[in-house]
Design a protein around this nucleic acid. Sequence first.
DNA 1: CCCATCATGTAATAACATAACAATATTGAA
DNA 2: TTCAATATTGTTATGTTATTACATGATGGG
Lengths: 162, 162
Amino acid sequence: MIPNPIGFEKHDHSHCVQDAVAAADKKCRNAGVQLTPVRKRALEILLEEHRALGAYDVLARLNEDGYGSQPPVAYRALDFLTKHGFVHKIERLNAFVACAHPGERHTPAFLICTECHVVAEAETEHSDSLMGQIAETTGFRITRAVLEAEGICPNCLAKETA
Amino acid sequence: MIPNPIGFEKHDHSHCVQDAVAAADKKCRNAGVQLTPVRKRALEILLEEHRALGAYDVLARLNEDGYGSQPPVAYRALDFLTKHGFVHKIERLNAFVACAHPGERHTPAFLICTECHVVAEAETEHSDSLMGQIAETTGFRITRAVLEAEGICPNCLAKETA
DNA sequence: CCCATCATGTAATAACATAACAATATTGAA
DNA sequence: TTCAATATTGTTATGTTATTACATGATGGG
C-alpha cells in the first residue's frame, strides 16, 4: 500500500532538519564525498520548507549567508544533492525539494498542491512496479523516472468545503 | 497490459500525419473551437517527428512558413494543442510531442531515450490506477499527472550490444 | 613539496516562458 | 447589415531558468 506521505500535516520541524542533515553527512562520508558548507546549507534551506524552491530562491538564501551570488553556486549544490538522493527536482515546477524519505530506494511520486504549493512525496512500490512493467514490456532500460501529480491537497479541499 | 508504444519502430509517416490532423480538425469543429492555420501547422510539425521539439524549434519552423517570429506565436499554438489533447508537454525536456494515442483518455507515460531522443508514448491503465491509488490513499484530488521515464530505448540498446 | 582533483567564485550567455498591448478577424445578436 | 463582443495573431519588452567558460582556492596522495 501507499504510505501516508508527509507534507499534508503540520509537524515539529526543528529536529527533523538536523536529523536529515546528520544522516546526509554520514552518507557522504561513507561514500567518500564531501557535504561542504554550501551544500549543507542548501540542504538545510530546502529541509526548512515543505515546498519546492526554485534554484534562484535557494541562491538568494545562500547569498544572504555569504556564499556566491551567481547561478552556478546554487545549481552545483543542487546537482550534488540531487545526484546523491538528498534532494529531488520537481520537473513540473522547475524547482527542488528535500527528500522526505531518506534511505529508501524507491521511485518517488510527488503530489503538488496548486493551491497552497505544498509538495508531498509518496514513496510507493507501485510506482516501481509500473515503471518496471513499462520497461519490461517495451524493452526500454529506465535510468530515471519522473512521477508527479498536480491537484488539490486534502487540506485545501477541506477549506473549500468549509 | 501495456500496449506496445509507438515510436520505437520505423513506420510509414506520410499518412499518419494527415490522418491525425484530420482527426484533430474534426474534434475541434465538434468542440466549437478553431484549428487555425498556425495551430494546424504546429501540429503537423510535431507529428512529423517522433521526438519532442522545444517551443523555439517549433517557432523557427512556423516562421519559415510565414508566421510570426516571436515566442508567443509558438507558445499559444502549443497551449491550444496541449489543452485539447493533441500535444503533450514533456516536462523533463521542456519540450512538446504530438499525441500518439489520439482519442484515448488515459494518463500517458512517456519513455525518453537519452541516446537517440525518441519519445515514445505508452498509454497504460496502470498509470491511471497508480495515480488513482495515490489519490485515494492520500485524499489528494489529481488534476494532471506527469509520468516520464528516461533511459535507453530498445533500438539503442541493440546498437550498443552489436 | 608538488601535482592532481575537487570545490567555489565570477562573468557572460543561452534557453525557456510570459506580460502587455495593438491590430485584425470571426461570430452572433439587434 | 451593422454593431459589439470575443477570439486570434502579431510585436515589443521582459522575466525566469540554466549552462558554458574560465579563474582562484582548498585538499589529499605521492
